[in-house]
């Protein structure tokens, strides 16, 4: 199963840092995301996009995760040669991740 089937995400930017929220459609899936979508897994998944470290923040208060990715915007919003300098489209790169989902 792909992540976009059970969760949604928005990308944000600060300089060369990319932020990706990860929010399950059902709050009951939060634990599953915590277990499977680790910073390391995201780092492997986003290889070729994120060059620096990824920090994962857990927000149980809103059943959501936040990934803060360093060196992810080809030098930064204002001076990158990419079409999408902000990396606004990259939330859907995260959502391409595979997740093992069993609905008990």
């Amino acid at each position: 199963m792909k992540l976009y089937e059970i969760a949604h995400s928005r990308a944000g930017d600060k300089g060369n840092t990319l932020t990706l929220s990860l929010i399950p459609f059902k709050e009951s899936d939060y634990e599953l995301l915590c277990t499977q979508i680790t910073a390391q897994k995201v780092q492997e998944h986003l290889q070729g996009i994120v060059e620096g470290e990824i920090i994962r923040y857990e927000l149980p208060n809103i059943s959501s995760l936040l990934f803060v990715c360093q060196q992810a915007l080809l030098g930064g919003v204002t001076t990158s040669l990419a079409i999408d300098t902000h990396g606004k489209t990259l939330s859907y790169a995260l959502l391409e991740m595979e997740i093992a989902y069993t609905n008990f």
Binding site: R10, K14, T19, F25, S63
Partner: peptide, 16 residues
């Protein structure tokens, strides 16, 4: 709830 959560985390570098 979903639109509010997306916005709460938007461009946040450290939620603490």
């Amino acid at each position: 709830l979903q639109t509010a959560k997306e916005q709460l985390l938007y461009e946040v570098i450290n939620p603490h």
